[in-house]
Design a protein around this nucleic acid. Sequence first.
RNA 1: GGCCCCAUCGACUAGUGGUUAGGUCAUCACCCUUUCAAGGUGGUAGCACGGGUUCGAAUCCCGUUGGGGUCACCA
Length: 502
Amino acid sequence: MVAQRVRTRFAPSPTGYLHVGGLRTALYNYLFAKKMKGDFIIRIEDTDQSRKVEDAQHNLIKTLEWAGIVADESPEHGGNYGPYVQSERLHIYRQYCDRLLEDKNAYYCFSTSEELEENRELQLKQGLQPKYNRKWLPEEMGGSMPSGEIRKKMAEGVRYVIRMKVPDYISVWFEDMIRGPVEFDSSTIDDQVLMKSDGFPTYHFASVIDDHLMEFTHIIRGEEWLPSMPKHLLLYEFFGWEPPKFAHLPLLLNPDRSKLSKRQGDVAVEDYIRKGYSCDTIVNFVAMLGWNEGEGTEQEVYSLQELIEKFSLERVGKAGAVFNVEKLNWLEKQYIKSRPAADIIRTIKPLLAAELSRKETPLSVEVITSDSYLEAVIELMRERVGFEHEFVTFSSYFFFEPEAYEEEAVQKRWTPETNGLLREFSSVLETLDPFSAETIEAALKDFVAPRGLKPAVLIHPLRIVASGVSFGPSLYHMLEVLGREAVLRRISKGIGQISAKL
RNA sequence: GGCCCCAUCGACUAGUGGUUAGGUCAUCACCCUUUCAAGGUGGUAGCACGGGUUCGAAUCCCGUUGGGGUCACCA
């Protein structure tokens, strides 16, 4: 037998944002398909009309593409197995449903939701497991409903659903690629609704039909689907189809180990994008939640390409994994440390432009938006920022004058002599040539030594007047980048404001 | 509650019968240092429990406990 081309899919419902758990599911499907030189497909499961959200489909696909996950077939890119949106495939489900009806593997049910609810409460009260009571199971299928009754309801045009007839007391078994053999007893399974009264299929029905027709070889999905496996398997059996291989992924967890949810933090990929995480970081991080290379590898940072090369379903773990933001932050820092300055410049330029459009600066806009200036700032700040946008926000003194001085730092570093020393040193800086980190450092030491002082008495105040804060990059390099004019201006401004405070 | 899944440091994990149980994040200490980072060195910290199997169990089996998922005309 010739090995068939691997086909995997991510099948979200368009109810809003992309969940990070969804991203990981999509990623694993993508990685596996690409590793196997196969295809990754996106299908939209919009069979619940009431939950459908405008634009959600497009956002889902856009967000996946942001992460580098591009589908070979999707509603937006087309393909040979379309349509890729379930609401456009209703005639297909109808057709297959008819087949089940004919084969007596499914039946009409006219029970109203009130009736169902009543029945459920009754069973609960009696201490029984709530289950459909098979009121409308026809006589010829082993039930108690005469066919005349069913025909009568049909003729009256009463709304109905179609349920699958789950065989009694048989065992349903399959081999999960991650979990190994899993077995269920059919007596614990309800007669699942396949077609809703609005004519739309339920998830269980539509996904089985589509997974078969679209010829997927591997279904990789979240563990929350494991309990519905027997229903799906039974459907494959009813149709005489060979089921694809299944892999149920461990869940992503909140810090309290419950299923990752809103309320306990951000779950939308868009939230993390907004905060400034890069796609490389998010993809890397989410990939490592439940998968690792194994065999004593100590690598932590992976590119999408590397993940494709190294991924395997065999190395996906079984236990749920907590989404830990601290490690995510560490990864983002690793990413920033290694990203070429030119790339960072490209992403921060628009941010800087936006800042400049709403804030005045005495600095030369031409200079501070130049590549060479930005590169200097980046190299000085690279190891001190957590996100790329912080090159602009966290280092704003490279672009704007400090508006205030860190109170605590001033208290700690100012003495009655400080302003005088700053004034004197300022005149040294005025004639310094060239104005560089080396010459500034040398000048400062020469200035301080004859006076019997330590460099620190000037270093700290200089940092504060130049940046407004007590922390930051190497002082001398910072002053060099800022330039003589700005430094002199800031010293004199600082002397004025801080002496007034004392 | 029924059914199903799961169980190594606080978190992510390596480990597939013989290891001083390893790595990363976080944390603590020290070093470096004008600050903040980064970096370096070292430390604290784990096999849920109880039975087996075996010369030998984190590793295999059973049970207990614990956690999670799921029980819709939602996916």
